[in-house]
Design a protein around this nucleic acid. Structure first.
Lengths: 249, 249
DNA sequence: CACGTTTGCGTTCATAGAGTTCACGGTCGT
DNA sequence: ACGACCGTGAACTCTATGAACGCAAACGTG
């Protein structure tokens, strides 16, 4: 029989308020071998309904990509509700909340991963691949031979990513620059960003360009004064780097 | 500043059916510096009652050592119930169930660790120490500068086997390097640490990296001068995460 | 409308420290 | 006493950074 449960792959539900982001996440999941995006919903209520229906149909959702800020409630509250309802879906929290207290609450609510928006496709790929391996390590045998095996599975779930940056760039500096840029709501020139982050204008520009390349920042010239226009870099809260170009002024 | 971090220790509730095991677990916890065993109960109902009362008293339980086989219900069911009730206790499952499906259910119910009985005192010690460091890493600052910080916290929670040092490292040298680093409030480069500890830069770096991996030290780049930035290692306990350097340019 | 002025971008290059590889010496087990 | 192994350090390669410099782009003036 060819019901959904028999289909190979890990079934994923995407819960995301913003339609653009939702589509992007779904696309990322679909592109991942061994994963199937079985649904995309935009609210807590819909998510719970979807999970209920899936379970009733005998095809429970394996993994949920859960945005924490939803129109009809908080994602962690949804998480608690579905635990209470006995759902066994694993949850990857996807949010722009950098509050560490939120991270702790997420852990205690039982999320297996916590991904900060905006994230690269590679970052999600890494999480999904790890999750797949976790599933694999637990799925093949019925009995654990020892603590080591259990530990191994847990480690798979939570070992950090191998973020491979382009040559010449380092993770701490990128964090510093990105953080400075995030703070400055009005936008920053390369020189100003450099001064704020404690690096030279050249280095700052390097990382700012990288942020633009990966879609995490935008760059627009600042006219008005004499001389070559100053480039103003601005943090971009969300919206993945899907082809968005050409608008001049 | 969260007052949770300011509390004298991490409060632990032991939920264990067997009185002998319960006493042993409680003893282990008490023996662990920085932890307080605040209660020992023997059933789901009592556990829930205890957590309710603790929360009402303004002293919520931080961590629960939870046996899964209890006289009046299953531990995971209790786990789900307390999630539904909004408790933020973290849970370490303690059970003799070697069933891998059970492990998966435990993960989806939101346990942070899964410890197979019987376990050694060292095994529990390792888990508790990691948990303490996890709390510390999340309690100190209000905002994460990047995904790395979140990942680090998750890794602390779930990476096993810190008991034995990695190959190529020796305890005396580690002690020497750690003590040198602890002395230097302002932070040390690998070369400086090596000189102070009487070992080569390479060896010093090896141990410093290990300290960073296990969360006992942080490293941050020093910008300002030409050439590759110098990495500055600091003992955990100070060092604001935002890279703020006055001496630039 | 053209040319000079002004300002900051973008690139090239030297540099200094990071990170890696490999060979040595000591120790432990057989 | 011999061999294997483990921790250490030296030499080397690579990488991330800032300084210098030329150039591009807009404004101001004739």
């Amino acid at each position: 029989m060819t019901d959904l449960a028999a289909l190979p792959g890990i079934s994923v539900l995407v819960v995301e308020d913003d339609p653009v982001a939702a589509a992007a996440h779904t696309l990322y999941v679909e592109r991942e071998p061994g994963f199937r995006a079985v649904g995309t919903v935009h609210s807590c209520a819909d998510a719970l309904r979807f999970l209920e229906r899936a379970r009733a149909a005998g095809t429970p959702v394996d993994l949920t990509l859960l945005d924490l800020y939803l129109p009809d409630g908080h994602g962690l509250q949804l998480c608690r509700s579905l635990r209470a309802a006995g759902h066994t879906t694993d949850v990857i929290a996807v949010t722009s909340a950098r509050d560490l207290a939120m991270v702790r609450q997420a852990v205690s609510a039982g999320v297996v991963q916590y991904l900060l928006k905006p994230f690269s496709a590679a970052a999600l790929h890494d999480r999904l691949e790890r999750y797949a391996r976790y599933r694999d390590s637990l799925g093949r045998t019925g009995e654990a031979t020892g603590q080591d095996e259990v530990d191994q599975a847990f480690a798979l779930l939570r070992t950090p990513e191998r973020s491979s940056l382009p040559k010449g760039l380092s993770a701490p500096t990128l964090d510093a620059v990105a953080s400075v840029l995030r703070e400055a709501a009005t936008g920053l020139s390369a020189a100003a960003a450099g001064a704020a982050a404690g690096v030279s204008r050249i280095t700052a520009r390097r990382y700012l360009e990288h942020l633009v390349d990966t879609g995490r920042a935008v760059r627009e010239p600042q006219y008005g004064s004499v001389g070559r226009p100053e480039l103003c870099y601005r943090w971009r809260g969300d919206a993945p780097p899907a082809g968005r170009r050409g608008v001049g002024a």
